[in-house]
Amino acid sequence: MKYRMEFAKRDSVAFVSHLELMKVFSQAIRRAGLPIACTEGFNPRPKINFSSAIATGMTSLAECAEMELTLEVDADQIMERINETLPSGFSVGAIRQMEGKHKSLMALLSHSDYQVRVRLAETYGKAADLDEAVNSFLAQDSIVVLAKRKNKVKEKEIREGILSLEARAEGDFLYLTMQLVAGSNGNVRPEHVAQALMDYLSTPSLTMRIEKTMTYGLKDDEKTRLFLV
């Protein structure tokens, strides 16, 4: 029996890495006494899959995961039991039983929304012209960022992967809202977009906090909340 859930990862557990996330969920499921299905072989692993490897340090309001149970359990009951046993910071907001065959969550994921709070070295001076500046940033044909992969730094073209971007200045902060391409078809990272914008605005930033607010997949070519795809 397959179940899909949508969960949030808030506060300090942002620093739980993707590998550790797997452990957090399998332990919570065992504590809840849910009959989780395991892989065969010498080293059986619980059957749980996640939509994406969420970056360490990022919070998220809409991660998706699927798990397989050996028995049918009422979805609401699963949600109640698992929310009781998950460590604080994690919560499952929705769950549904899946019928028939479908692509993996990883393959379904197409876009994500993010909110980024950029702490600036000083108050942003040209707040009134910010919208215009963002528009001209987006009007560029090409936006190239330096992406680190292991120990190599590579140039990466990200313009096509930015579907929308809005900015708002408030005190020493810039608040960015963006929708980016996500998943296996060219993932664009929100910190790259934020950094490219800061560079474009010639505004030095100190730190940023990033939250993923929604994940999407395509259903009949329509962008749809991943949980429902």
């Binding site: 506060d11 300090s12 620093f15 890495s17 550790e20 360490t56 340090g57 460590p87 604080s88 702490r119």
Partner: peptide
């Protein structure tokens, strides 16, 4: 926000 993103395995330092 400022220190933990810069270190290895920050979850060592968050408790909870």
């Amino acid at each position: 926000e400022t220190i933990l993103p810069l270190v290895e395995k920050p979850i060592r330092y968050t408790g909870g």
